[in-house]
């Protein structure tokens, strides 16, 4: 019998072992739900799968009585639009400020401490300010996401730019590059895959800020819906929404990874992709 540290699962057992915790949680839930439903068929806390199916059908396929919208899709579109704006603006800020800070020592001396200070402000603490300044509309929600994740992306890209071997920066200058073409042809293309990495790591934070902002002031959105139906203990809606958000987050992460592999084949192969 080999020692545990030397026993490696083959493909099938790895798959089964990976599924096991999910199945266990599901089984525990089903058992607990069945027990509560046996005691009280109208129990709202741990609904059964029939109740989930009915709630999902109601949210996704039947027009809302008040607005006539299909709520799940309307919520999803609203949330994804805010998320996309937030991520896009953060990526643009991160790329520009991160590269400038990473490549130009004078800019770094001026901006780097400021960005570091900015990134320490708890974003939720400035949410009231955002609501006051930008009102309760879309801008304040997007702004919260940007304030939450842009400083992190800036600092990450600045660090990645500083990690580029100084040999490459010197080499480009001996080939005739000026500061601008050095950034354009040498630094920027090498940082784009790293930006995708930074975005993937920021996704969790972006969702957090999105749902927090929606919970406080919105009229549609995944976070808004969850907090709205909480008043009615509607676990049959909340749990599928949480699962849906998780699935969306997974899909975005997967899409960014795929994009990175397809668009930057050199990145995975070179030392930079070894992380």
């Amino acid at each position: 019998m080999p020692r545990l540290v030397n026993r490696h699962p083959d493909r099938i057992s790895r798959l089964l072992l990976g599924l096991l915790p999910f199945l266990l949680v599901l089984a525990v839930y089903l058992l607990a739900s069945a027990e509560r439903l046996a005691a009280n068929p109208n129990d709202k806390l741990l609904p059964g799968f029939a109740a989930f199916g009915a709630a999902i059908w109601r949210m996704a396929a039947l027009p809302s009585e008040r607005s006539g919208e299909l709520l799940l899709w309307a919520d999803t579109m609203a949330s994804l639009a805010r998320l996309a704006w937030g991520l896009g603006i953060s990526a643009a800020i991160g790329l520009v400020v991160g590269i400038v800070n990473g490549v130009i020592p004078l800019a770094r001396a001026g901006l780097s401490p400021f960005v570091a200070g900015l990134s320490l402000i708890p974003p939720m603490a400035v949410l009231p300010i955002l609501f006051i300044v930008f009102g309760l509309g879309e801008v304040s929600k997007v702004a919260l996401i940007v304030i939450g994740i842009a400083p992190v992306i800036v600092r990450d890209l600045q660090a990645r730019a500083l990690e580029l071997p100084v040999e490459l920066i010197v080499k480009a200058q001996t080939l005739g590059a000026n500061t601008w073409t050095l950034i354009l042809r040498v630094v920027l293309p090498q940082l784009l895959p790293r930006l995708l990495d930074a975005l993937r790591l920021s996704l969790g934070g972006a969702w957090l800020f999105l749902i927090a902002a929606e919970a406080i002031a919105a009229s549609e959105g995944l976070g808004y819906r969850i907090f709205l139906v909480r008043r009615y203990l509607a676990m049959d809606v909340i749990l599928p929404y949480v699962a849906w958000i998780t699935l969306l987050a997974f899909a975005i992460d997967w899409a960014l990874r795929l994009l990175s592999r397809r668009a930057f084949p050199w990145f995975a192969a070179s030392a930079g992709g070894g992380r």
């Binding site: 071997p165 040999e167 490459l168 080499k171 480009a172 080939l175 005739g176 590059a177 000026n178 601008w180 073409t181 354009l184 042809r185 040498v186 293309p189 090498q190 930057f264 050199w266 990145f267 070179s270 030392a271 930079g272």
Partner: peptide, 30 residues
């Protein structure tokens, strides 16, 4: 240099082409 002398994000021909582009196109590097 002993290491890090070529640009990892460009193919072999683009590495040499980049040298010509940087020297001849100060505005866009292309």
């Amino acid at each position: 240099f002993q290491r890090y002398s070529v640009f990892p994000h460009l193919t072999v021909q683009d590495n040499v082409l980049l040298a010509l582009e940087l020297a001849r196109a100060p505005l866009l590097g292309r």
